[in-house]
């Protein structure tokens, strides 16, 4: 465990807590894409299949449980909570995210490290996580005005991915056999998707203006 990895996990945890805090306190999910949250729940469900079979560390197990519980409860809140669901803008959140699931699964069948159910589900979750943010980014482009919490949520997600890339670089130079192209490439693709959001996020922060994405 290196500092980049720990910082990445803490940033990822913070992004989820910011989102839960937003939804739980102001009872609103305005600007949040349910589709992205559903994809994240599926990512964690297919990645943490080894939760009860391979014990790595208390930290690892605890974080997996937190991510699973939080992602599914966010989906529940947006879909079923009587007040929150009213603020969900389903007319704007129209990204056909099911079109992301199948290609990721087919790709996982073709490009993986081992042709076993667990490995294919794990690889599928990597590819899916790389594209899971797309519905959210499309929604942000549509709704134009981005409220602070949503902006912070996406920013923290991007920061977690960037820190993970630093973690992989660090591990590559410190652990002799640490080479995982699939993890690195899908993680890089995912981080690049945030690049333009980061650009506009910093522009708005520097010029102290409201964050707006170009149409």
């Amino acid at each position: 465990m290196n500092i980049f990895r720990l910082a990445g996990d803490m940033t990822h945890l913070a992004s989820v807590l910011v989102l839960l805090l937003k939804i739980h306190t102001i009872k609103s999910c305005a600007g949040i894409s349910l589709k992205t949250q559903e994809l994240y729940a599926l990512v964690f469900a297919t990645r943490y299949l080894d939760l009860f079979t391979d014990y790595i560390s208390l930290y690892n197990t605890l974080m997996k449980l937190i991510f699973l519980v939080s992602s599914f409860s966010i989906v529940w809140y947006i879909r079923h909570h009587k007040i929150v669901r009213r603020s969900y803008d389903k007319d704007q959140d129209t990204f056909r995210h099911y079109f992301l699931v199948l290609p990721c699964f087919l790709l996982a069948l073709v490009i993986n490290e081992k042709f076993t159910v667990k490995e294919i589900m794990w690889t599928f979750s990597l590819y899916l996580e790389a594209v899971a943010i797309l519905p959210q980014l499309v929604l942000l482009q549509r709704t134009r005005n981005i409220d602070n919490l949503t902006g912070q949520y996406v920013f923290l997600l991007g920061a977690y991915r960037s820190l993970y890339i630093l973690n992989w670089i660090y591990r590559y130079f410190t652990e002799p056999h640490y080479v995982h192209w699939i993890t690195w490439i899908s993680g890089l693709v995912q981080t690049l998707l945030y690049a333009d959001f980061f650009y506009y996020y910093f522009q708005s922060w520097k010029n102290n203006v409201k964050l707006e994405l170009p149409a």
Partner: peptide
């Protein structure tokens, strides 16, 4: 702990 295997990441 699985060392070197990226499965130890979240």
């Amino acid at each position: 702990v699985l060392t070197g295997d990226s499965k130890d990441e979240l």
